[in-house]
Design a binder for these strands. Structure first.
Length: 206
DNA sequence: GCGACAG
DNA sequence: ATCTTGTCGC
């Protein structure tokens, strides 16, 4: 498919995303990430108990890479592996925390939004570097008049992470949840553990 | 045309 | 993301 057609598909998916809290009490968060090895992509999901921040279940999957890395179209490269790994979990997960962006995206449809809409599940994007928008003095990322994300600084690091809601959750709740999942490092436990997990699986392949 | 550009 | 040693700092 051509890039401009994928752009249109993203605009269509973005219209389906909602940013209010569509859930009850939260207990299980799944951190999702992926890594690469030769022509394979390793998708991984780690379930964390919000009360302890300890992992209770993990699952991963290996797929053939079938799409290049194109800024703004990351989901077409990584979403299938992430979703496949997530579906292997037995735990009934309440919310997804994904490595990447949600509504803070050029077409308001980052990988967290695409996965959230496809699974009809609450999702949050946790980016590690700036993508787009304007950073206000209040720490929020603005796209026009809308707040689409927020910078979060962990106690020590100078570099922030970028939090943006993907689907079925508000920006405020997203920020609150990410903060609640912060332990020692710069990255919240769900995605930090997911990243650790998939790199571990990769080192198994060589 | 110019600049920006997640993982 | 990935390829990679030593090295600065808590």
């Amino acid at each position: 498919m051509k890039v401009r057609e994928l752009y249109r598909e993203q605009e269509r998916l973005a219209r389906k995303a909602v940013f209010y809290d569509a859930f009850g009490k939260l207990k299980y968060v799944a951190g999702i990430d992926c890594s690469y090895y030769e022509d394979l992509i390793i998708g991984g999901a780690v379930v964390i108990d919000l009360n302890t921040l300890e992992p209770i279940e993990k699952a991963h999957v290996l797929l053939k890479l079938d799409f290049p890395y194109i800024p703004g179209l990351l989901a077409y490269r990584e979403a299938n592996a992430m979703i496949s790994a997530f579906k292997k979990l037995d735990t009934v997960v309440d919310v997804l925390m994904i490595d990447g962006f949600g509504t803070n995206h050029p077409r308001r449809c980052g990988i967290a939004t695409q996965i959230g809409v496809r699974l009809e599940m609450p999702s949050i994007g946790v980016g590690k570097s700036f993508l787009c928008g304007d950073i206000g003095d209040d720490g929020y990322v603005y796209q026009g008049a809308e707040r689409t994300g927020k910078l979060i600084y962990s106690p020590r690091s100078k570099k922030p992470i970028y939090v943006s809601p993907g689907h079925r959750i508000s920006l405020e709740t997203s920020v609150e949840l990410v903060k609640k999942c912060m332990k020692s490092g710069r990255i919240p436990e769900p995605t930090r553990l997911a990243h650790e997990y998939v790199t571990g699986v990769k080192n198994t392949l060589r």
